[in-house]
Structures are given as C-alpha cells and as structure tokens.
C-alpha cells in the first residue's frame, strides 16, 4: 500500500481536479441532515459529520429507478451513467458496496448497479470520531479500514494522511503528484494515534461468530416474540441500512407510456410477502424481524460469503421504538 499526505488546502485543488468526472460528496442540508449529493460547488462539501443519514447505497441503487419505458414505438432502456467519484465515504459504507456488488453480480448481473460502479473512484474519510451507535469493529472492520475503497484519507490536523488502496487510487495520486508528498515520521505517528483514539471510542460490541453459529438453531426461539413486540413495522431499519437491497418492481402508466419502476422494498412491511391468494408466510412482525436478521447474518453468509451488516449503527440510531440489533443478536448469542 502506498502512503502519502496532502495538505488540507491542497485537498480543495485535488477535488477540483477530480471534477473532470462527476463528484458526489456529503452535503449538509437546511435541517442539518447530511446526504451524498452531486457537488457543484466544493464549498458545499461537509467534513464534520459522523455519518451520512442515508448510506452510500442510495447512489448505487436509487430508491426509485426506471428499468425501462415502453410505448407504441417499442421498449426503451434508460441511460444509466457512471457515478464518477464518490468522496467522503465512511469505511463501513465502503464495505457495504463490496457486499452489494457480490449480490448484484451473483447469478444474473444487474446492469444498472454495475454501470454506476464502472470506473468508479471511491475516496474514504476515516472516522476520527465514531458515533455512539457505531460497532464496525465487531464486523472485522474499523474506523480506518480500507475495504472497498480506492483511497482513504485520515485527518491528522494540518494534513490528511492518504492510504492508496487500489490501482484507480494510484492513478488519481499520480495524476496529481504535485499535491501529494511522502509522510514524515511525525505524520505516521499522528495517524496511528488518530486510529487508536477512534478505535477506543467504539463502545458497542457484538460477537458475530458466536451469533452466526447460534442462529442456526434459533429459528423457533422465543426471543423473536419478545424483541418484535415493540417494533412498529416501519421501513427505517431497512431503508437506511447500507446493505439492505430488496426491491419491488411495478409498472406505472403515465401519459401514454408505461414505466417499469424499481423501488426499494422492505421485509418489515406486511405486503413484502403477501401472496395473491391472501396467504402471508410472514404474517406478523415476529417473522419479519426474524427474517431481516437471518437474511443478514445467515442467508447472505451462505450465499455470498459476506455478512449483511457493516456496523454503521443507523438502525440503532433511527429506530422509532428503540429496537437494538446488537441487543437482539446478543440475546441469540447467549441462548
């Protein structure tokens, strides 16, 4: 791995040079919510945030997208373009794109997702100050991990410490050589310190190995009854999850044209499994919560060799009734 440093004021120049491609980065809105947006003015980019409200998946699988349009003249596929550069991705979110890539490549390739990912440069921002709901270190990741990234920047005061991870990252550095320099011994020390501090701040822990082993025999456990009682059945935990990817396909008729639309769907909704006969194999929240957890910690592991959780803590942060994934799984682990 190549290590470099870049002065903070040179980062602006670097980002300006990257804008030959489209550039997406975290932007703060009026309500103070942080979202990935297409950046027109570099000043819009925010560096002060724990994590974006919606995960980076929302760029790769937009909540609503037209798969094709059909009219009297025929079938018209949409033009899907590459994302270009995504800057300011947290390590947990970067890992989620690796997980999603395996999902969208398996069996049948998803051209929409893969097109957006083509020639992508994903530049991460290390978490120097993880949030109170973060637990990435329990998933084999960390506030400074580089999985799925081309390059990772870590704030070390006056400069950013840059870890170049991939060929694409290397290219970006090479074409902006004048902005990067070799890290000094002091820079390395600062980076190490920042990482240690960050890792210490992650208070929540989960024994994933134990949980995945226990889940094999916990399908009929009483735990599911208990933890599902307070769930109100909204879609927050899935919509805001970086790895949840289930979708619905519907045809929408508008002004003489038919659009086949793909939208996010959620296994926490009763309609997710409702069959036309009227039968619902997951009739209550007990079965729905259980399915969500089994999908993440069992089925994905069996199907693509990855766990469908990156420890970002968004489900803990946003659940309106306080369902806590770590607590649920810890109970399974202890059972």
């Amino acid at each position: 791995m190549i290590n470099k440093v870049i002065k903070k004021r040179d980062l602006q120049k670097f980002l300006r040079n990257l804008r030959t491609k489209k550039l997406y980065a975290p932007v703060k809105d009026e309500e103070g919510k942080i979202e990935f947006k297409l950046v027109n003015d570099l000043k819009e980019i925010t560096f002060e945030f724990t994590n974006t409200l919606k995960p980076v998946k929302s760029l790769f699988i937009p909540q609503t997208e037209t798969i094709f349009m059909t009219d009297k003249k025929g079938i018209h596929p949409p033009k899907v373009s590459n994302l270009g550069v995504v800057f300011g991705v947290r390590p947990c979110d970067a890992k989620s794109i690796q997980v999603l890539t395996k999902v969208f490549e398996k069996d049948r390739e998803d051209p929409y997702f893969l097109q957006r990912k083509k020639d992508l440069s994903m530049i991460g921002l290390a978490c120097t100050s993880p949030g109170e709901n973060c637990f990435c270190s329990s998933l084999g990741l960390g506030p400074f991990s580089t999985d799925g990234l081309d390059m990772l920047l870590a704030d070390i005061g006056e400069k950013y410490y840059v870890e170049v991870v991939s060929k694409s990252g290397k290219k970006l550095v090479e074409s902006n050589q004048e902005l990067f320099s070799e890290p000094t011994k002091a820079d390395r020390k600062l980076r190490k310190k920042a990482q240690q501090n960050a890792e210490k701040k992650i208070a929540r822990k989960l024994d994933v190995e134990r949980v995945t082993a226990k889940l094999k025999h916990a399908f009929e456990s009483a735990i599911w009854d208990e933890v599902s009682k307070i769930c109100v059945g909204c879609g927050i935990c899935t919509y805001f999850c970086p790895t949840c990817h289930c979708f619905d396909l519907t045809d929408e008729f508008l002004e003489g044209k038919i659009f086949r639309v793909r939208t996010w769907d959620s296994c926490t909704f009763p309609y997710f499994t409702l069959q036309s006969s009227g039968h619902n194999p997951r009739p209550t929240r007990r079965e729905r919560i259980r399915n969500r957890i089994y999908h993440k910690f069992q089925y994905l592991l069996e199907n693509i060799g990855e766990i469908g959780c990156v420890g970002c803590g968004r489900c803990l942060e946003n659940c309106p009734s306080g369902v806590n994934l770590i607590e649920v799984l810890s109970r399974v682990g202890k059972s």
Partner: peptide, 10 residues
Amino acid sequence: CVRCYACREV
C-alpha cells in the same frame, strides 16, 4: 420523504 411510513406506523 423516503416513504418508510414510520409516521403512519407510530
């Protein structure tokens, strides 16, 4: 709005 329907469910 992302239509998570949390407003409706709570």
